[in-house]
Design a protein around this nucleic acid. Structure first.
Length: 498
RNA sequence: GGCGACGUAGCCAAGAGGUCCAAGGCAGAGGUUUGCAAAACCUCCAUUCACCGGUUCGAAUCCGGUCGUCGCCUCCA
């Protein structure tokens, strides 16, 4: 089946056909690294991580580039505040970012270029834009001339006339048109700078993505991604620069933009000061919870963030892992090479729960591809995944499921693996996941594991002597602190309430 | 003001002309299980998709209007 993608440039769903059959070039705007990343960044990273995983799964050879903007006005300003070198500051935040992204289970891109290491490519591109008559120098600065580029505004649906009308800040008189933007900024004292044909200076904000995407992917490539807030001016300007420099069009064949994360129905953004960092979230729960929250929504819709919603996603994820654990046990017992006919017979023997599980596993891959092909509809994919969760749990609740039914559970295990590969959800060993939840939640609630275990031991003693009053009192006390006790045939276990 | 998105059960959220039903999650009610619980499982939970018109044999899905929410237009993922 063919993938269909919503292309911001066309504002419609289009069949995805890469420039070169079987190969995909994909560029995603990374982060300006002057602070810790927030969950809005995480949304973009996770969105394109899933798209990348899916394209690879479909058999494409994907070159995936995601940049670090390690030198720009904000990096310089922050470095000055802290009295450190700008590149040292951005280097530190790149390290932090890598930790955060690993916590979110992101696959590494093919290339992660830094602006500061591509200054020559940037200078070269600016020179070509000037030579092609689309930019001009003004006292050491270089500006892009928007009126020289007829297609300016094609992505965001605005015209240069609109921009003149809507102009709010008094125009810099070095610019010929208020919407003209800097490709190169002349050096000011104390700022990092590089030599150039226009004197010492540094790149403007948008040019780095044009230069680096061209360097790694060529003048025309398949997919460019980023947050919807980048459509204007960043991506509009990127198109202008790239096409003006290379003389080729379209610069990008499919533009993909993810929706924003909102807090209390308001966009989370630096200017509003309502930021939640990725590390703050990772301290309290596994990164997969955030993945699930995001992937439960379509990537273009806004996601309202709140701790209540995170709690719900954690509950759902926990349920997924319980089913996954059942399936894993079956897989460990039976392996995955039971003949189909034997599995069909087994399903019959188990009646409805057996037939339902087999039908869920047999249709799983097809349903998953159908939803992902349709503009990466992860919300629908997750619906399919939870159908499998229910079928697995239902089957697993039967008395002989664990032993005799193991081949069917093994089948479910394969499906969980596929979903984990594509979505990055359910990738952990269930035992590891449950442990991670326990320790993170305990820490968040300021409780200690040894205390919980002592209490539990005491309760087990009481239960042995059938002293239900004491046992129940301990359980109530634990429950009051958020610890849920579960009595099973193999003794008592506990979990943290989420 | 310009450009754009969206309004589906108590909450979150898919579905984009009929043929498998308006998926799935959370919450809720009843049941199985249990020393009692918890977890899990079973059953129930939108005659209806913001509102009003229109197109069609047929619309949550297409078109027009009304109301409401949000984003971009300024650094932003």
């Amino acid at each position: 089946m063919e993938i269909r993608i919503y292309n911001t440039l066309k504002r419609s769903l289009e069949p995805f056909r890469p420039l070169v059959a079987g190969r995909v070039g994909m560029y995603v705007c990374g982060v300006t690294v002057y602070d810790y990343c927030h969950i809005g960044h995480a949304r973009a990273m996770i969105t394109f991580d899933v798209i990348y995983r899916y394209l690879v799964h479909k058999g494409y050879h994907v070159t995936f580039v995601r940049n670090h903007t390690d030198i720009d006005d904000k990096v310089i300003a922050r470095a000055r505040e802290q009295g450190v070198d700008p590149l040292e500051l951005s280097g530190r935040f790149i390290e932090a970012l890598e930790e955060d992204l690993a916590g979110l289970r992101l696959v590494r891109p093919t290339h992660e270029p830094k602006v500061s290491e591509h200054i020559q490519e940037i200078i070269h591109l600016i020179s070509r834009i000037i030579a092609n008559g689309h930019a001009y120098e003004a006292r050491g600065d270089v500006y892009f001339a928007v009126e020289s580029f007829r297609r300016y505004g094609q992505l965001s649906g605005r015209t240069t006339a609109d921009m003149r009308a809507g102009e709010r800040i008094e125009a810099d008189h070095r610019k010929k048109h208020p919407a003209d933007f800097a490709l190169w900024k002349s050096a000011r004292p104390g700022e990092p700078s590089w030599e150039s044909p226009w004197g010492p200076g540094r790149p403007g904000w948008h040019i780095e993505c044009s230069a680096m995407s061209q360097h790694y992917l060529g003048p025309v490539f398949d997919i460019h991604g980023g947050g919807s807030d980048l459509i204007f001016p960043h991506h509009e300007n990127e198109i202008a620069q790239s096409e003006a420099g290379s003389g080729q069009s379209p610069f990008v064949r499919y533009w993909i933009h993810n929706g924003m994360v909102t807090l209390a129905e308001e966009k989370m953004s630096k200017s509003l000061g309502n930021i939640i960092s990725i590390r703050q979230v990772l301290k309290e729960m596994p990164g997969e919870v955030l993945r699930l929250l995001f992937l439960e929504h379509h990537y273009r819709s806004p996601v309202p963030y709140s701790s209540e919603r995170m709690g719900r996603s954690l509950v759902a994820l926990d349920r997924l892992y319980q089913a996954r654990e059942l399936a894993l046990k079956g897989y460990r017992r039976a392996g995955n090479d039971t003949p189909a006919a034997q599995k069909a017979q087994l399903a019959e023997d188990f009646g409805d729960p057996g037939r339902d599980l087999l039908s869920a596993t047999n249709s799983f891959s097809r349903r998953l591809h159908a939803s992902m092909d349709e503009d990466f509809n992860t919300s629908q994919t997750i619906g399919t995944l939870f159908d499998l969760v229910r079928a697995t749990n239902r089957f697993g609740a039967l008395p002989k499921a664990a032993k005799k039914g193991a081949p069917l559970l093994a089948e479910a295990h394969d499906c969980f693996e596929l979903a984990a590969t594509l979505l990055g959800i359910g990738e952990s060993d269930p035992a590891v996941f449950f442990e991670e939840v326990k320790s993170k939640r305990l820490a968040a609630m300021d409780l200690h594991r040894s205390w919980v275990e002592d209490q539990l031991q005491e309760r087990t003693q009481a239960r042995k002597t059938r002293d239900w009053a004491t046992a129940d009192a301990i359980r109530t006390e634990l429950d009051r602190k958020g610890i849920i006790v579960m009595d099973g045939p193999q003794g008592s276990t506990w979990r943290v309430r989420v």
